[in-house]
């Protein structure tokens, strides 16, 4: 178990290293471009060359990569050309806001998807199953920006009970919690269906297993069969999927934050990308990958804890 954890962490380090190299190479391989990006299109070639020299950008790529890596590891994430301040000064607030949004969404998605998935999967082909399955297929098929449009039409324009933007600014006339409702709803709608289907598929599979038959023919009530015998087995496979949703949430966050003008990490990444703010994009990309890889490890660990076959071998 400990050896496994160690191995996974070593793998995490390796992946992060490879990712950082990839990201670095993608943006900074050609030195002239960096200076050009910083100075903008109207600078003279002479100015570009001088800045290139000044920033040490004409040194070998590997050398520059290690400098950059060392700086990053020491917490120096570079200077944002878009926000005109160190990346460090903006990224943490943005992350905090996003954590709030994603956290609330996740807290809604997990219990809801488990309940719906189990309810659908316990009797395959029943009316309950068919309706839950088809609705989850439909909700996962609506792109976030489209559901944003639909929900805004209903709740903002038609009913007028929710704000159409979420700048997290109480001065805008809406309390923060009401501003959060629509963004969270959009994320839940898109993501919920997917997890529900995973849980359902796993539950359906478990219900066909001979040990469920054993439990029924032992004289257990249907409730006990589900709660004591099916549930834990049915949660093993979707566990990793649920944690992988954090990965999808990062993607969702970018779109949702763009839709609702939410001052989060995702919008920062997008704005930086649109204005070629390399340092910010690099930092954000590394951060996103770090979150996604760590959740994978957590998923693997949880899978081991849930599954005695792996735990005791």
């Amino acid at each position: 178990m400990l050896a496994f954890l160690f191995k996974r962490i070593a793998l995490l380090a390796f992946t992060m290293l490879a990712v950082s190299l990839l990201v670095f190479l993608a943006f900074e391989f050609t030195p002239g471009q960096v200076a050009r990006k910083v100075l903008g299109p109207f600078a003279t070639q002479d100015q570009v060359d001088r800045l290139t020299e000044e920033l040490g950008l004409n040194r070998p790529v590997i050398e520059r990569y290690f400098d950059w890596l060392t700086n990053t590891l020491q917490g120096d994430l570079g200077f944002s050309t878009l926000y005109k301040q160190p990346v460090n000064d903006i990224i943490w607030d943005r992350l905090g806001n996003t954590l709030l949004l994603a956290g609330v969404a996740f807290a809604v998605i997990v219990p809801l998807s488990i309940i719906l998935g189990i309810a659908a999967g316990m009797k395959e082909g029943s009316i309950l199953d068919r309706s839950i399955s088809v609705s989850s297929i439909v909700t996962t098929s609506v792109p976030e920006f489209a559901s944003g449009v639909f929900l805004a039409t209903i709740f903002v324009i038609w009913l007028g009970i929710l704000p159409g933007t979420a700048p997290l600014d109480a001065g805008a006339g809406w309390p923060i919690w009401q501003q959060l409702i629509l963004p969270v709803m959009v994320m839940v709608l898109y993501d919920l269906g997917y997890v529900v289907r995973m849980v359902r598929a796993s539950m359906v599979e478990v219900m066909t297993r001979p040990y469920i038959r054993t439990a029924i023919l032992k004289g257990l009530s249907f409730r006990d069969v589900i709660l004591k015998h099916a549930l834990r087995n049915a949660m093993i496979a979707p566990f990793t999927v649920i944690l992988l949703q954090i990965n999808y949430l990062i993607t969702g966050v970018v779109v949702v934050e763009a839709v609702f003008a939410y001052p989060g990490f995702g919008r920062m990444l997008l704005e930086a990308a649109l204005s070629q703010d390399v340092a910010t994009v690099e930092a954000a990309a590394l951060f996103a990958v770090f979150v996604s890889v760590s959740t994978q490890i957590a998923g693997d660990l949880g899978y081991m804890m849930l599954n005695p076959r792996i735990r005791f071998s």
Partner: peptide
């Protein structure tokens, strides 16, 4: 390595 990028980050890059 490619899978460890959230899709949107890869798209953006």
């Amino acid at each position: 390595i490619l899978l460890s990028f959230p899709a949107i980050v890869l798209y953006i890059i």
